[in-house]
C-alpha cells in the first residue's frame, strides 16, 4: 500500500501547512491499528491527543453541582411552596389584633382625658373597656370582611 500521500501530509503537518480537513485525515489514519512501521513512531502523538479528548471529561455530577450553585446564587428566582389555610390567614389575624389593640388604648386614653374626676374614674374605666371591646370586635370584623373579599378576588383571578 502506498503511504506517500500520508507521508506528504505529515511533512506539511510539522510545518503547519495542513488544513483542518487534512489534519482530520491524519488523525483518522493514525487512529487505526494498521499503521506501517515507518510511520508508527508518529502515531504516539496522535494517540496522546486522541486520548486527551476521550479521557479528559467532567461527569454529570459536575453539571448538578454547577446548577445547584447557580440556583443558590439567583436572588430573583421564585420557588413554589405549600401554604396551609391557617398560615394564609395569619397576616389578617395579625392586622386585626394590632388594630384592636391600638383602638382600645386610644379610646381609653381619650376617655381618661375627657373625664378626669377621681370618683367616676372606675366607672368610666369600665365603660371604656366595654366600648373598647365593642370597637375591637367591630374593627376585627371589618378587617376579616376585607380579608375575605381579598381572598375571593384572589381565587377569582386564579380561576380566570
Amino acid at each position: 500500500m502506498d503511504y506517500k500521500y500520508i507521508e506528504q501530509l505529515l511533512e506539511q503537518y510539522w510545518e503547519c501547512g495542513t488544513s483542518l480537513e487534512e489534519e482530520a485525515i491524519l488523525r483518522s489514519f493514525f487512529a487505526q491499528d494498521d499503521v506501517p512501521e515507518s510511520l508508527l513512531p508518529y502515531r504516539k502523538m496522535f494517540v496522546a491527543e486522541q486520548e486527551s479528548v476521550e479521557n479528559v471529561r467532567l461527569d454529570a455530577d459536575f453539571d448538578k453541582r454547577v446548577m445547584a450553585l447557580i440556583d443558590s446564587r439567583d436572588p430573583h428566582q421564585v420557588k413554589a411552596r405549600s401554604v396551609s389555610l391557617n398560615s394564609r390567614w395569619r397576616p389578617f389575624y395579625k392586622v386585626a389584633a394590632v388594630l384592636a389593640m391600638v383602638l382600645s388604648v386610644g379610646m381609653a386614653v381619650q376617655q381618661g382625658w375627657e373625664s378626669p374626676q377621681a370618683g367616676t374614674v372606675r366607672q368610666q374605666n369600665l365603660q371604656v373597656m366595654d366600648t373598647a371591646t365593642v370597637t375591637t370586635f367591630d374593627a376585627a370584623t371589618a378587617t376579616m370582611d376585607a380579608a375575605a373579599d381579598t381572598v375571593k378576588l384572589f381565587i377569582d383571578n386564579n380561576q380566570r
Partner: peptide, 9 residues
C-alpha cells in the same frame, strides 16, 4: 454546560 469538557481540557 456542554462546553464543560472543552473548557476542562
Amino acid at each position: 454546560l456542554p462546553l464543560k469538557d472543552k473548557l476542562f481540557r
